[in-house]
Computed example of a mutant assay.
Amino acid sequence: MTAIEQYLIDTYRAAQLGAPMPPPPGRDDVAVLRSARTYAQFRAVVDGREARHPWRAALHRLTHPHAAPQCGP
């Protein structure tokens, strides 16, 4: 069963029981990714490393594919 099929079944069941509708699949995916990125930046600061901006780090990886990764001291 796919996520969409399960969502439709849950929506039908909620309508029959008068319960609130479930969130559609994938609605909170971006929020989860953002919180994971924020946590990674937090851990970098706590560990004493530089908390780089994710776009800047991704751009650096694309433009310098053979450069050694920049990790703590």
Results as ranks from 00 to 15, higher is better:
residue 36 A to H: 08
residue 18 G to T: 01
residue 46 V to Q: 15
residue 34 R to K: 10
residue 50 E to N: 00
residue 44 A to H: 03
residue 35 S to N: 11
residue 56 R to K: 14
residue 39 Y to K: 09
residue 65 P to S: 09
residue 36 A to M: 12
residue 67 A to T: 07
residue 57 A to D: 15
residue 36 A to K: 14
residue 32 V to Q: 11
residue 50 E to W: 00
residue 19 A to P: 00
residue 2 T to M: 07
residue 8 L to W: 08
residue 8 L to V: 10
residue 59 L to Q: 10
residue 28 D to V: 00
residue 49 R to N: 11
residue 9 I to N: 06
residue 64 H to P: 03
residue 16 Q to E: 14
residue 51 A to Y: 06
residue 29 D to Q: 09
residue 31 A to C: 04
residue 63 T to K: 12
residue 30 V to W: 07
residue 27 R to C: 08
residue 25 P to F: 02
residue 25 P to W: 01
residue 29 D to I: 06
residue 53 H to S: 12
residue 21 M to S: 09
residue 59 L to S: 09
residue 72 G to P: 08
residue 69 P to L: 09
residue 53 H to K: 01
residue 72 G to V: 10
residue 4 I to F: 07
residue 23 P to H: 05
residue 6 Q to F: 04
residue 63 T to I: 10
residue 60 H to M: 05
residue 61 R to C: 12
residue 52 R to C: 05
residue 59 L to N: 08
residue 7 Y to I: 04
residue 70 Q to N: 01
residue 53 H to C: 09
residue 54 P to K: 03
residue 13 R to C: 05
residue 10 D to M: 07
residue 21 M to Y: 01
residue 4 I to Q: 14
residue 25 P to N: 04
residue 21 M to F: 04
residue 53 H to Y: 13
residue 71 C to F: 13
residue 56 R to V: 15
residue 25 P to E: 04
residue 19 A to W: 08
residue 37 R to T: 13
residue 61 R to A: 15
residue 44 A to M: 08
residue 57 A to W: 11
residue 8 L to M: 12
residue 32 V to F: 04
residue 15 A to I: 03
residue 73 P to N: 11
residue 12 Y to K: 02
residue 49 R to F: 05
residue 33 L to R: 15
residue 34 R to T: 03
residue 2 T to W: 00
residue 65 P to Y: 01
residue 66 H to C: 04
